[in-house]
Design a protein around this nucleic acid. Structure first.
Length: 425
RNA sequence: GUGGGUGUAGCUCAGUGGUAGAGCACUGGAUUGUGGCUCCGGUUGUCGCGGGUUCAAUUCCCGUCACUCACCCCA
């Protein structure tokens, strides 16, 4: 056991990968149904990109990034997907090609945090971004799409939380109002909150420390300082969600840890499955200033990311798969060459085949075929070999018949295809 | 960065100051060549690592490392 995976970075072995694939396919299907197309961006970006977009005084930038120097470049493993996507959007002047852009992505992200349940140093996010649509209808549809996806995956106990952080002017006003409110009560705050007061007072609002919560309870609400346009936008979001009959709760203290959010911000949580304390499945919001800040024209944008590991923790086990595939059991080395060519013929017809070349007892091979969930098996011994036939057994119906070499591939295909179609219906 | 928990077979875990067990898994047989149930047998361990106490430590003590959960923050 000399080598181990790097702390917080996990292998997905074959017993888990079907669940991953099911989730990824469901996400991609849902995203395409809503008009998104895939974008793939590099895992490594210039460090400045993240500092500029996520914000210099965020936890992510201050202490969670995997940054390194390569020759003259300061580089960072992406801690999230929006910055890279927006960089690509600006770099390729996509805004000049189309007025509204809808992208989805899926891949690993990296944050050097202390690992725990539902939080890893290399973790997988899937996300969507819309550029060029100011909302709020787009915002509501995005939230509704996520709720629909989670329901399809069988995840229950969902909660949608929404808030509006206002535009940048509003946000500045609110920040001042909060500083004014908290400063006289500094002593009543936790040490942590006291540090934040100067840098980012909004974060005190979602502190879980009871001391902070007590003080924050009386703080002015973000919703009270929204300007008319912000308020109209937020009301529009709520109306659209109502129209879609998507349940939500307004959480005026929902503040997300990335600085780029403006106006709409939201989280989707669940209490289901084996989720621990990290029960936010997806989070996102508007970032109407980022395109311009990264050098493009003023372009409204909204996006979200969801954590695949967390969703997998919340997903119920799927029903056992139907029997499929064929196991070939040659008995004795003389039967092996014929077994191999039969295996290839059957595979050519689209049926999964495993040929057992280990030379073990028939009982052992049978056990293995069964535990693999095979639908059929072929027994080829000396007697069959000399007569040009095999025994074809249906492991589900416990029936067996003799089939000639010339017909075996087609017979297996018929057996396994029928079973697959019946199972899928 | 802070705090708690756990390290014993491939997996899940019992256990004892006198150098280890169960279930599952794997495998052989009961059935000269037929799975899922049953029965009988077999294989697998530096008891995380280092030090201390002791005649003797997997067990007690100290340290260390790893894993894990929670705080923080986020997906």
């Amino acid at each position: 056991m000399a080598f181990r995976a790097v702390k917080g970075m996990n292998d997905v072995l074959s017993n888990d990968s079907p669940r991953w694939q099911r989730l990824e396919r469901a996400f991609q299907r849902q995203a395409r149904l809503y008009g998104y197309e895939e974008v793939r961006t590099p895992v490594v970006e210039h460090t400045d990109l993240f500092v500029r977009s996520i914000g210099e005084v965020t936890d992510v930038v201050e202490k969670e990034m995997y940054s390194f120097q390569h020759h003259r470049d300061a580089l960072t493993l992406r801690p999230e997907g929006t910055a890279g996507a927006t960089r690509a959007y600006v770099e390729h002047k996509v805004y000049a090609r189309e007025t509204v852009t809808r992208w989805y992505y899926l891949g690993p992200m990296f944050r050097a945090e202390r690992p725990q349940r539902g939080r890893y140093r290399q973790f997988y996010q899937a996300g969507c971004e819309i550029y060029g649509d100011p909302g709020p209808v787009a915002d509501a549809e995005m939230i509704d799409m996520l709720v629909g996806l989670f329901r399809q995956l069988g995840i229950g106990e969902l909660q949608v939380a929404i808030n509006s952080l206002g535009g940048s002017a509003t946000r500045q006003r609110y920040r001042e109002a909060l500083t004014e409110y908290f400063t006289p009560q500094v002593g009543a705050l936790s040490a942590h909150a006291q540090e934040r007061l100067g840098k980012n007072p909004l974060r005190i609002l979602d502190s879980k420390d009871p001391k902070d919560q007590a003080v924050a309870a009386g703080a002015p609400s973000m919703l009270d300082v929204l300007d008319d346009a912000d308020r109209e936008h937020f009301d529009g979001l709520k109306r659209a969600l109502d129209a879609l009959e998507t349940p939500y709760v307004v959480e005026p203290r929902l503040v997300r840890g990335l600085d780029y959010y403006t106006r709409t911000s939201f989280e989707i949580r669940s209490e289901a499955g084996e989720l621990g304390a990290q029960n936010t499945l997806a989070g996102g919001g508007r970032y109407d200033n980022m395109v311009e800040e990264l050098g493009g024209p003023a372009t409204p944008a909204i996006g979200f990311a969801m954590g695949l590991e967390r969703i997998l923790l919340a997903m119920p086990e799927s029903a056992a798969a139907d029997r499929a595939g064929c196991y070939i059991m040659p008995l004795g080395s003389a039967a092996l060459p014929k077994a191999l060519t039969i295996a290839r013929e059957v595979r050519a017809r689209g049926v999964r085949v495993e040929c057992d070349g280990r030379g073990q007892s028939l009982k052992s091979q049978m056990r293995r075929a069964d535990s693999l969930g095979m639908r059929a098996c072929i027994v080829l011994g000396e007697d069959e070999l000399s007569r040009g036939v095999v025994q074809l057994k249906d492991l589900e119906k416990h029936t067996q018949r003799e089939v000639s070499f010339t017909e075996i591939a087609e017979q297996v295909r018929a057996l396994c295809t029928v079973s697959a179609e019946a199972g899928g219906a």
